[in-house]
Amino acid sequence: MAERLEDLNLPNAPIQKIIKEALPESVHIGKDARSALSRAASVFVLYITSQASKQAQKFKRKTLSGQDVMNALSDLGFEEFLEPLEEFLKSFQDSKGMQKKRKMKNVTADDPEIAEVDEIEDSADENIEDD
């Protein structure tokens, strides 16, 4: 749970970054507009969460799943986000899988160059077969 009031706000720096990406370079954003956007983003999270949790409760699940969030988004009129989000989720899971693999490799060999490790393993396999 949130201990302090500020914990329910999103940090300014990332929000500023997102806004800058969306606007052309010559246009800046007013201070009042930025703080309003920041609050709006927090409210957006809660709004989607409550819709998603309704759905989870309907199926008597206690944990919000990614699919709940997706369904909530499409229910509330943000269908256009679905496609990029699916793409993102896929790439995110892929990168997570890669990280795990890399960690496993790092345990066996300190050198992160996976190709080399693979070669060594292959040659080791061949040696065994030769024997």
């Binding site: 997102i18 983003a41 969030v69 989720l89």
Partner: peptide, 18 residues
Amino acid sequence: DSTCLMAKATELFIKKLV
């Protein structure tokens, strides 16, 4: 993954509104 999706959705939402 729902947290992750939500973070990204919020990002898209801010962009959309801007």
